[in-house]
C-alpha cells in the first residue's frame, strides 16, 4: 500500500500517491489540510478500486473472469459494460484500429529496447486471436472465442482520471486538478479564476522536456513512450501496434499530446492518432482538437 504525501503549495495542497504504475497527483486549491487529506484519500481509494478491477495482471477480477471463461458467456456489471461499450464504439469509429483484443500481441512483442523483432510467422499466428468483431457482445453478456483476451489497460488510467474527477467534484466545490503522470483533468476552477499551470512531460525527447500549459477546463493525455521500443537494422519499432497487421505502426510521432473535454477522449484521440502513423497530425487536425505532436 502506498502512502499519501501532502505537499504545501502557495495556493493550497498537492497530494501524491502511486497507482497504475505511476505517480498520481491531486492539486487542491485550499489551505485546509484536513480537507485536502480527505479528498486525496478518496481519490487514492477510487484509483485503486479501478486499478484492481480492470488490471489484467490479477486473477480475482472481471477481466480475468472474461479472459478465462473458455468461450462461455460472462455477465458483466454496468461499469464494465460502459467501458466495453466505449471500446466497441472506438473500434467502429477507428475502422478497427482501436481494439481491446490486441493485447495477445505482447506474446510476440516485448518492448525492451532490444533487437527482438518477432518473425512474420509468429505474428501471423497471433492475428487469428485478435479482432473485436469476433467477440459476441450483447450487454451484459460477453463471449470471447477461445484463445482471445481483452485488455482495458489502454483506457483504464484515463478512465480513472475522469472517474476520480467526477467523484471529487461531488465532494467539494474547491478548485482541483487530477494529474496521473501527464494524463490529467481539471476538476474545477481555482478560487481566483486563474488557470492551472501544469508541466507535461514530452516523452518523445530523449532528455526530459517539460511543456508548460495553463489549463482552465477539460482533459489532456499523452501517447508515446521513449522507453518502450525495439531497434533493429536502424528501424525503430514503437510500442504502438496495429491490431489489423500485428505490426508496429511506422512513422508515428514520438509523442502526441491531445486536449479534449475529458481525459478519456484525449487519451483515445492520442492513441488513434498514433495508429495513423505519418498521418497522425492530419487526423488530429481533422478532428479540430488542440494537440502537440513531436517527431524525430
Amino acid at each position: 500500500m502506498t502512502e499519501i504525501k501532502l505537499e504545501k503549495k502557495n495556493d493550497g495542497w498537492a497530494g501524491h500517491f502511486t497507482a497504475m504504475a505511476g505517480p498520481c497527483d491531486i492539486l487542491i486549491n485550499s489551505e485546509d489540510k484536513l480537507l485536502a487529506h480527505q479528498l486525496v484519500s478518496l481519490a487514492k481509494k477510487e484509483t485503486q478500486r479501478i486499478e484492481s478491477k480492470f488490471s489484467r495482471y490479477r486473477t480475482d477480477n472481471i477481466i480475468y473472469k472474461i479472459n478465462n471463461a473458455n468461450a462461455e458467456p460472462v455477465e458483466v456489471d454496468s461499469e464494465t459494460a460502459d467501458l466495453l461499450n466505449l471500446s466497441s464504439t472506438c473500434h467502429v469509429i477507428s475502422n478497427g484500429r482501436f481494439d481491446i483484443t490486441s493485447g495477445v500481441l505482447r506474446k510476440a512483442w516485448k518492448f525492451d529496447c532490444s533487437e527482438n523483432v518477432p518473425s512474420r510467422k509468429q505474428v501471423k499466428l497471433l492475428l487469428k486471436y485478435i479482432g473485436w468483431e469476433k467477440v459476441t457482445w450483447s450487454p451484459p453478456l460477453i463471449t470471447l472465442p477461445k484463445g482471445m483476451e481483452i485488455d482495458l489497460g489502454g483506457i483504464a488510467k484515463e478512465y480513472a482520471v475522469d472517474r476520480v474527477s467526477e467523484m471529487l467534484l461531488e465532494k467539494s466545490n474547491i478548485g482541483m486538478l487530477v494529474n496521473f503522470g501527464g494524463d490529467l483533468r481539471v476538476v474545477s476552477k481555482r478560487k481566483d479564476g486563474s488557470p492551472w499551470r501544469v508541466g507535461v512531460e514530452d516523452p518523445g525527447t530523449e532528455k526530459r522536456a517539460i511543456r508548460m500549459l495553463d489549463i482552465r477546463s477539460g482533459g489532456l493525455a499523452t501517447s508515446g513512450d521513449s522507453r518502450r521500443y525495439l531497434l533493429k537494422n536502424g528501424i525503430r519499432y514503437t510500442h504502438i501496434l496495429n491490431p489489423m497487421t500485428g505490426w508496429t505502426v511506422q512513422n508515428a510521432p514520438r509523442s502526441i499530446t491531445v486536449c479534449a473535454g475529458t481525459c478519456v477522449e484525449a487519451g483515445i484521440l492520442s492513441t488513434l492518432a498514433m495508429l495513423h502513423g505519418r498521418k497522425a497530425e492530419q487526423f488530429l487536425d481533422d478532428q479540430g482538437v488542440i494537440n502537440w505532436c513531436t517527431r524525430d
Binding site: 464504439t89 475522469d162 488557470p195 495553463d214 477546463s217 477522449e265 479540430g288 488542440i290
Partner: peptide
C-alpha cells in the same frame, strides 16, 4: 467530424461529463 461527436457521447455514457478545453 462525426468521430469526435460519437466519442464524446460515448464518454457521456461512461458517466463523465465533458467540458471544452481552454488554455490561457
Amino acid at each position: 467530424n462525426r468521430l469526435l461527436t460519437t466519442l464524446t457521447s460515448a464518454c457521456v455514457a461512461l458517466g463523465v461529463s465533458s467540458s471544452a478545453a481552454e488554455v490561457t
